[in-house]
Nucleic acid binder design. Structure first.
Length: 624
DNA sequence: TGCGAGATTCACACGACTCG
DNA sequence: CGAGTCGTGTGAATCTCGCA
């Protein structure tokens, strides 16, 4: 029995087992000391062991019973014939009553079976532990392998294009290779040769034309970078020099400043420019051109959203130094530069002051300046006596583009017209607004009776009226792309119908006046346009106009849209055209409109009357 | 001065994508 | 679905520049 006890690995015993063992040993010692007096040592030990075996046997039996009971109660129990270690421990830990005695042979067999069961449990436990350990190792190995494979795949293929566009990384590589002198036409081959030799596959290609564009792009990036850095630097120094090459003066320019993140000042090379001469004035002009170009580029780039607009004054205010040689032209250039800087600064301050003025203050200032100007020439008689060129040079009042004013008049007149349809006057007249000219998606949204929100949004974002009709007509009857629109068929058809070649007005969002011309055209030849649309319909396989053409067709049948077209036509013929003729007339001698004011007012009243009559003619609800 | 390589310009085409 | 934009490719003509 002692041999059996030694065979147990103590490290695998539970606390309950260890406690039971300690108690057994203590009891054995007590029994041993008692037996020294009353019994022989061999008989006492034998008896003690038998008792212990008996107890353990009963404990094991109870454990089996508990296990069976647990299996019966649990759903989907397994058929494992071996009791779990937990069951045994549970039973072992519980106190057990003294058992009846066993024969030595029976106790030995039970003990062996128990020991076998425990050993089996240990093996199972060990197998499970090893299986878990192997699975953890295996999964981490698989993850590592997958990551490595992905890395290798990514590195081994060099992608030149992403969705048809040359990637930024490829562009940078192209610029680097161009920088070291690789010919445009050989760049792709060079990249392929190098990467293939390194075992990297190259996907995609580019042409030498793209290389050219990418190099130009690099120049733009460089200038934008300089502008970005200037905005973040406190001061800068400029320098430059010139030389001539084949009788052409070339001026080089440099800037020295400390860019953000740099501890030392960096020298930036500015674009080389060709100058008419190497005089100080020409050199100053070069610097002005450079700064102007830089500001224009920056202010027209998307970067303005982050960095804000930049003025020449903001660059000049940071220009604290100018380095050059001791030549006289450079000294003169420095003086001219300083003068320019002061002038720009003065203008910027003046502009700031004017912009902060109220309208009354500004008007007062303008009148004051105008009076000063008139006083210098001896009042109004003196001003009238001046030649035109002198008037031009002395006219310091603000000039505005007359055609822009005219364009704005049409634009705001259209907005006023839009507002009319929802006004009380329109309601009194039962005048319905022009029909909506939905695009395809919005038309679908409006047709969907369940989509109330989408319908409301479609009506909110959709346009209608004369301007939209003229815009659509321009897209169909005179598309700027030859392959789009119906311009060819339009020309042939109208030539046949009218007997002479016509062209639909070039409608454009930036030139509102063209809509007026289109309105005239659509109204004058309305019947022919409707016939032409019918012809387009019959020429199609399905016999249907497309969405845009159908919109025009509907609009040309809508009285309210036709009314707006009439208003635009009247305005164009009676105001726009005479006004344009007037402001473009260089021979005029006085600032007086050729159409008398009373005539304009009469035209306006007639137009208004026509509109109202037209509205009355078509009651509300009449749309086609 | 002529030649050839490389760069530039022009005009057009095509595909991907967005917008209405 | 059509219009429009953008990025790219292509071929031909022309220009530029280095070199013998």
């Amino acid at each position: 029995m002692a041999r059996h006890q030694r065979s147990f690995n103590t490290s695998h015993r539970s606390k309950a087992q260890k406690r039971a063992l300690r108690e057994a040993v203590a009891q054995r010692q007590r029994n041993t000391s008692d037996a020294k007096i009353t019994r022989s040592p061999g008989a006492t030990e034998n008896e003690d062991l038998r008792r212990r075996l008996h107890n353990m046997q009963r404990q094991f039996r109870r454990a089996q019973e508990a296990r069976d009971k647990a299996r019966r109660t649990s759903r989907g129990s397994s058929d494992d014939s071996v009791p779990s270690l937990g069951d045994i421990m549970l039973c072992t830990a519980s106190s057990s009553p003294p058992s009846e005695s066993l024969t030595p042979h029976a106790s030995s067999a039970v003990w062996a079976a128990l020991r076998q069961a425990i050993v089996k449990l240990h093996r199972q436990n060990d197998a499970l532990r090893k299986r878990l350990s192997r699975q953890v190792k295996s999964s981490s190995r698989e993850i590592k392998r997958a990551v490595q494979k992905a890395k290798v795949t990514a590195v081994m293929t060099y992608v030149i294009k992403d969705k048809g566009q040359i990637t930024d990384r490829a562009r940078a590589l192209i610029r680097s290779l161009v920088d070291i002198g690789i010919p445009f036409s050989s760049l792709l081959d060079v990249i392929r040769c190098v990467l293939i030799s390194a075992g990297i596959e190259v996907k995609g290609k580019f042409s030498k034309h793209s290389v050219h564009r990418i190099v130009l792009e690099g120049g733009v990036y460089a200038r934008l970078q300089i502008m970005d850095e200037i905005q973040h630097t406190k001061s800068l120094t400029i320098s430059g020099d010139g030389t001539s090459f084949r009788n052409i003066n070339l001026e080089a320019g440099f800037m020295l400043y400390k860019p953000p993140g740099s501890k030392t000042p960096q020298l930036r090379t500015l674009p080389l420019i060709a100058a008419t001469s190497h005089t100080s004035e020409a050199q100053l002009k070069g610097w002005q051109g450079r700064f102007n170009g830089f500001c224009t580029l920056w202010n027209s780039s998307p970067l303005i959203q982050d960095g804000g607009p930049v003025s020449i004054n903001s660059i000049l205010s940071k220009t604290k130094g100018m380095s050059s040689d001791h030549a006289n032209d450079q000294k003169s250039l420095a003086a001219l530069f300083e003068k320019w800087k002061a002038q720009v600064d003065q203008e910027a301050r003046g502009q700031e002051a004017v912009m902060s003025m109220t309208a009354v203050e500004l008007l007062t200032l303008q009148i004051e300046v105008m009076n000063t100007c008139l006083a210098q020439v001896g009042g109004y008689p003196g001003w009238d006596a001046l030649p035109a060129s002198e008037k031009q040079s002395r006219n310091i009042a603000a000039h505005r583009c007359g055609m822009h004013k005219e364009m704005n008049a049409v634009k705001w007149g259209t907005k006023y017209m839009e507002a009319f349809w929802v006004s009380e006057t329109a309601k009194e007249l039962d005048a319905p607004p022009p029909i909506f000219l939905f695009n395809r998606d919005n038309a679908a949204a409006v047709a969907d009776k369940t989509a109330t929100t989408a319908k409301a949004r479609a009506e909110q974002v959709s346009s209608r009226g004369a301007i939209k009709t003229a815009s659509l007509a321009g897209a169909i009857f005179r598309n700027k792309y030859e392959k789009k629109g119906q311009q060819d068929a339009y020309r042939y058809f109208f030539s046949e119908m009218l007997g002479f070649i016509v062209q639909f007005p070039d409608t454009s969002n930036t030139r509102y006046g063209s809509f007026c011309d289109a309105a005239c055209e659509l109204l004058v030849n309305l019947v022919i346009y409707l016939e032409f649309l019918d012809l387009m319909r019959y020429n199609k396989e399905k016999g249907e106009l497309n969405h845009m053409e159908q919109n025009i067709f509907d609009a040309l049948h809508d009285p309210s849209t036709l009314t707006e077209l009439a208003v635009l036509s009247l305005y164009s013929q009676n105001i726009s055209q005479p006004y344009a003729a007037f402001i473009r007339d260089t021979s005029r001698t006085a600032c007086r409109p050729r159409i008398p004011g009373e005539d304009i007012q009469r035209i306006y009243q007639v137009s208004l009357q026509m509109i109202r009559q037209d509205i009355r003619r078509y009651p509300a609800g009449h749309t086609t």
